[in-house]
Design a protein around this nucleic acid. Structure first.
Length: 570
RNA sequence: GCGCCUGUAGCUCAGUGGAUAGAGCAUCGGCCUCCGAAGCCGAGGGUCGGAGGUUCAAAUCCUCUCAGGCGCACCA
């Protein structure tokens, strides 16, 4: 619909002399159909011309004449409403979708630019929980959104594989670990040890000190600790890879924190040379008080590095390696202070690109009233969630369609789709309450609802049993539901743009739900031989199939971007 | 204490300056001899936490206030 906004802005600009781009931004969609297809609120013009908005609207309505796209223009109070030529719009949009196919909605505004996205980034020696899933799902969706816009995208898995916490795991393993259990069930065993050391620490604070010492030794290349770390790390990565395969998530680089071990010293020197370092309470810090921020701790009192050091090293390394246009950190809201500090320190180091770094934060996943916490041990395992969802999908699928070609694969597609979509069904910043009932609700606003609608459209197109014609007659698409769908299809570009600008995949989720709602209402409303999609009238059937096959394309692209598969039968 | 975030229908959430505040779940009532009922249609349900203010126009912006959450020195 973007092109028609431009067109209308041109018309109004010609009549008033007001800047065309400014007008484009003002044009909006009216709340109801009888108010036309696009509208220009005249409040701003009223200020310029010192007349009432209603008078301006009336006056402009008189000056406007019909055009190739605009059928009539009508003043409605302070609004100037534009009614488009439906036949023309229908023909253009459907042709555009069909010509583009899976490429419809793509753009090349990102050509030659690189976006680096840091996402997923689980901690080794810890289970992959529902919380990490959120970063993974949002990051992977953003990656596909930017690819859709022509950007070169580098997805980085910044594994949490270094730091004091491994001192804890190493210490716990030395105290209570069991090689046999580790071999058999690595993540579970490491997780038990991790929870246990946190509990024991409460009773015996000396453990904290011992754990730090273990990490200091690890950083000092102690061979025993290094071997243990390496083993934990390898076992964990193997588990994570299974999950990524299941979610079909890929990374261009897996460079965890340990990757920067040999790059921290250089950062420290840079900070030192800029005179940014200060000693405070025995630790090394960058004082950020004049920027209203807490100090950033760069090194511990025993000289071991901290995550801030490694994040600085990572940012500098990535800038040098990828020359990025933007860098996104898909990390929970709990770390927002850290990122403010990080970006500020980069700025102080003279990195002009610090402004291109964004913390794409997301809210908590709560369990009941509590925040999920690995340390407290109240987390939900991703594997349990997926296996329950797939099991439920298997039951539902088995009932309706005994002839389904690949029941197991479809059950997985739908079960995983339900889980993935749950993370995309809210705005990023919203805290999510983890709820089994909602996760396993395949109706309403859910992934399976979108997939179901897609399969349903595929089924109708199959039943039509003829090639979808490109020579359909758009003048036969006169039902209000048909026109509403056409306008919705025409909005796909704008939705992608908005999702990319705001780093918000939810806009796409919301759009797809609306699109499916329009289709389902349309589908169910008309049942007579003439009115149904596969109409007794061959011409109508041809046009309607071209229309719903266009929905199919957009739905398929949208689902793919979000990370869901779109089975043709389910 | 300082900083940030949230408060919209019974529940979970959209809507972030414009035309009667929307959806899903839940409740109640309808719709499969007919293209897939994982669906659709309808009903009830909201002083948008509260009070001031800015504006032609406020759920949306500002101030104050109440309630909840998170972050703030050697975890990441």
């Amino acid at each position: 619909m973007r092109q028609y906004k431009f067109h209308i802005a041109e018309m109004v600009s010609a009549a008033t002399g007001v800047d065309r781009l400014q007008l484009t931004g003002l044009i909006e969609s009216p709340p109801s159909e009888e108010m036309g297809d696009l509208a220009l609120p005249c409040f701003h013009l009223a200020r310029v011309y010192k007349k009432s908005p209603a008078a301006i609207a009336a006056e402009l309505a008189g000056k406007m004449t019909a055009t190739e796209f605009v059928e009539r223009v009508q003043a409605n109070g302070p609004y100037l409403n534009f009614f488009l030529r439906r036949e023309k719009i229908a023909a253009e949009i459907i042709r555009e979708v069909r010509a583009g196919g899976d490429n419809y909605g793509k753009s090349d505004i990102g050509l030659g630019k690189t976006v680096v996205i840091d996402y997923s980034s689980p901690n080794i020696a810890k289970p992959f929980g529902i919380g990490h899933l959120r970063s993974t799902v949002i990051g992977a969706a953003l990656k596909r959104i930017f690819l859709f816009q022509g950007y070169n995208v580098v997805g980085i898995n910044h594994l949490g594989d270094w730091g004091t916490q491994f001192g804890k795991v190493i210490l716990a393993y030395k105290l209570w670990g069991d090689d046999g259990i580790l071999q058999e069930n690595p993540i579970e065993h490491l997780y038990d040890l991790y929870v246990r050391i946190h509990q024991e620490e409460e009773k015996d604070p000396s453990l904290t000190h011992k754990a730090r010492e273990e990490f200091r030794k690890l950083e000092g290349a102690d061979s025993e600790n290094f071997a243990l770390w390496k083993r934990f790390s390898d076992l964990s990565k193997r588990e994570f890879d299974k999950i990524y395969a299941m979610l079909r998530v890929q990374f261009e680089a897996t460079a965890g924190e340990s990757f920067y071990n040999d790059k921290n010293a250089r950062v420290e020197k840079l900070l030192h040379d800029k005179g940014l370092l200060r000693e405070s309470r025995e630790a090394t810090i960058v004082d950020l008080e004049k920027f209203g921020l807490q100090p950033m701790l760069v090194k511990r009192s025993d000289d071991a590095t901290l995550y801030a050091t490694r994040d600085l090293a990572a940012a500098i390394y990535r800038n040098e390696t990828y020359k990025f246009h933007k860098m996104l950190y898909v990390v929970g809201v709990a770390q927002s202070l850290h990122f403010q500090q990080l970006f500020k320190v980069l700025e102080l180091l003279g990195c002009s690109w610090a402004k291109d770094c964004h913390h794409v934060s997301f809210g908590w996943v709560k369990l009941g009233d509590e925040m999920m916490s690995t340390r407290k041990g109240n987390i939900v395992f991703l594997e349990d969630v997926i296996s329950k969802a797939v099991k439920l999908a298997r039951e539902i699928i088995g009932k309706g369609r005994p002839d389904l070609p690949d029941p197991e694969g479809t059950a997985r597609a739908v079960g995983i789709g339900a889980v993935v979509f749950t993370d995309l069904a809210f705005r990023r910043e919203t805290d999510i309450s983890f709820d089994w009932d909602r996760m396993l609700d395949f109706g309403g606003n859910s992934g399976p609802y979108l997939q179901y609608t897609h399969a349903r459209i595929c089924s109708v197109v199959r039943k039509y049993a003829r090639a979808v014609s490109e020579k359909f007659d758009s003048s036969l698409l006169i039902l209000p539901e048909e026109y509403a769908i056409i306008k919705k299809l025409g909005n796909f570009h704008e939705i992608i743009d908005k999702a990319a600008e705001e780093f918000e995949p939810f806009h796409i989720s919301s759009y797809l739900l609306e699109l499916c709602g329009l289709f389902n209402a349309y589908y169910q409303r008309y049942k007579s031989p003439d009115d149904r999609i596969i109409s007794a009238d061959a011409g109508k059937a041809e046009s309607r199939i071209a229309l719903i096959d266009s929905i199919r394309y957009v739905l398929h692209s949208g689902l793919t971007i979000l990370g869901l598969t779109a089975p043709e039968i389910m």
